[in-house]
């Protein structure tokens, strides 16, 4: 995508967010509505300015959003999957899984190194949060009673 298109899109998104916020805030009673309405208008106005500026004199050169699209998408996807799994498998199992799987997917091929460092790392986290701080962390669904 060219720099110009990106900025038009960016300005458009901010203009939409700002005007939606302003419209919502206009319904809030009294002084509690004035400030967010005004802020929404400012966000929308600046967004529109960015978009208009890009239309008028935006550079047509490309600007990379990602350095390596497959890897960035893979990482984001695995991170999202991890968050989905945390309440299902419990924090520790999901974490151990993500620490082993992510390097593997990114091309790390030293299983022993990977497993040992995972073990040490999860052990430290467990020691700090569950033993010393006694913080309750998400438990696996089959154990939450």
């Amino acid at each position: 995508m060219t720099e110009r298109r990106q900025d038009i899109l960016l300005g458009g998104v901010f203009a939409a967010v700002g005007s939606t916020a302003a419209l919502m805030a206009a319904d809030y009673p009294g002084a509690s509505g004035i400030y967010p309405t005004a802020l929404g208008c400012v966000v929308a106005g600046l967004g529109a300015l960015v978009a208009i500026r890009a239309v008028l004199r935006g550079a047509d050169g490309p600007r990379a959003l990602v350095e390596n699209a497959p890897r960035a998408a893979l990482t984001l996807g695995l991170a999202a999957l991890y968050l989905v799994l945390v309440p299902v498998l419990g924090f520790y199992l999901a974490s151990a899984l993500v620490v082993v799987v992510v390097p593997l997917c990114l091309g790390f091929r030293r299983p022993l190194y990977s497993l040992v460092s995972t073990g040490v790392f999860i052990g430290i986290v467990w020691l700090v949060f569950s033993v010393v701080l006694e913080k309750p962390l998400p438990a696996p669904v089959w154990l939450s009673y």
């Binding site: 968050l83 924090f91 993500v98 992510v102 790390f108 990977s114 913080k135 309750p136 962390l137 998400p138």
Partner: peptide, 29 residues
């Protein structure tokens, strides 16, 4: 440590740190 190992480790630390603030999963999202 190899960068690819740091990636999930930082991710896990972020998750645990954020979760224990309020004890809710929605904060992770």
């Amino acid at each position: 440590l190899p960068g690819v190992l740091l990636v999930p480790m930082i991710l896990v630390l972020m998750a645990v740190g954020v979760y224990v603030i309020n004890g809710r999963v929605i904060d992770l999202w």
